[in-house]
């Protein structure tokens, strides 16, 4: 099995699915790699290079460079999806969702329900989120809570290369609209990824570590940090279970509840401001359905209720860290 990056894993999933199914198309800003200029189209492949190599292989009809018109990109992808294609639209940074949210939550996500079950919208919106790149307040957010609360959408947050490939293949084959939220902080992360295509089902959490003293639930880029915290705690003989739900919608509630039933202690790590976050959501789930199992208040490690700051020291302080996660777990003991 090859060790490849998270970026390459996403690229491989797109490539293999495009080969498998001619109705899979990509569209977005520079996904082809800069059409219409005097140089080589396809030499780039998106601002982070994720789609590199696909334009030369599949051509301009299947890897479609678009204007910087997010509403038209997402709306056209939704329209193509509901009429039979399987578009993968790239929304460069999830921060830009503000200019096209209508096409996501009022249109694509609602077609099936509003139309009495007669529409299928197999749309994937690939986008990236998360802080840590010194990119400032409009290029660093992680808006999964906004997306997770929308009925009709599925939301995926891969935390490693293996999951990125398997979950993206699942997303492309899925018949519902899916937001695939890549973590820009993880693009260079390497891991073992099978060459062949495989699917990881939605709504099935990944147990990264088993331990009886406490449960940590972490999402996306917070998963590696939760694992670091678990390593630190292990040095003191504290054994924790680490759960990566992998998708926030659907959410594997059973995995979380079962684990809390065993450990009695829960810390949720969410790179998001605290109000209406996934941390709050999971805490509410456990408080309402497993209250008797709890031996301590639920710990929530989130960002503060602020925009993402620019200065490196402030941004570092903004983020949940392994130290903060470790402290939160100790507080429950």
């Amino acid at each position: 099995m090859a060790r490849i990056s998270y970026r390459k894993a996403v690229n491989q999933a797109l490539d293999q699915e495009m080969t498998r199914d001619a109705s899979v198309i990509l569209m977005g800003i520079d996904v082809g790699g800069g059409s219409g200029g005097s140089g080589d189209v396809g030499s780039v492949g998106g601002v982070m290079g994720v789609t590199k190599g696909l334009y030369p292989k599949y051509g301009p009809n299947r890897v479609i460079d678009t204007p910087i018109s997010e509403s038209a990109i997402i709306g056209a992808a939704a329209g193509a999806a509901v009429t039979g294609m399987r578009p993968v639209a790239e929304l460069m940074f999830v921060d830009f969702i503000g200019v096209c949210l209508d096409q996501i939550y009022n249109q694509a996500a609602k077609f099936r329900y509003m139309f009495g079950g007669k529409a299928r919208t197999p749309l994937v919106i690939r986008t990236m989120g998360g802080a840590g790149m010194r990119a400032g307040a409009q290029h660093s957010q992680n808006l999964h809570p906004i997306l997770t609360m929308i009925p009709g959408l599925k939301v995926v947050m891969p935390s490693n290369p293996y999951d990125a490939k398997g979950l993206l293949i699942r997303a492309i084959r899925d018949d519902d609209p899916v937001v695939f939220l890549e973590s820009k902080a993880l693009y260079d992360m390497k891991g073992e990824v099978p060459e062949e295509a495989y699917e990881i089902p939605f709504g099935e959490a990944n147990f990264l570590r088993d331990g009886g003293d406490a449960t940590i639930v972490a999402f996306g880029a917070m998963v590696p940090r939760a694992m670091q915290a678990a390593d630190r705690l292990a040095k003191d003989g504290i054994r924790v279970t680490v759960i990566d739900p992998r998708t926030t919608s659907p959410l594997d509630e059973e995995a979380i509840l079962d684990s809390v039933d065993e450990t009695g202690r829960l810390v949720v790590v969410d790179e998001s401001p605290p109000r209406c976050s996934l941390a709050a959501d999971v805490a509410a789930l456990v408080a309402s359905q497993a209250f008797d199992a709890l031996k301590a208040p639920v710990g929530m490690v989130t960002c503060p209720h602020t925009p993402v700051p620019f200065a490196p020291n402030l941004e570092d302080a903004y983020m949940p860290s392994a130290e903060k996660i470790e402290a939160a777990v100790r507080k429950t003991l």
Partner: peptide, 15 residues
């Protein structure tokens, strides 16, 4: 709401 969606429907026909 409809114009972007119709662009996509037309794109399907073109492809």
């Amino acid at each position: 709401g409809s114009p972007p969606i119709a662009v996509g429907a037309a794109l399907t026909q073109k492809l």
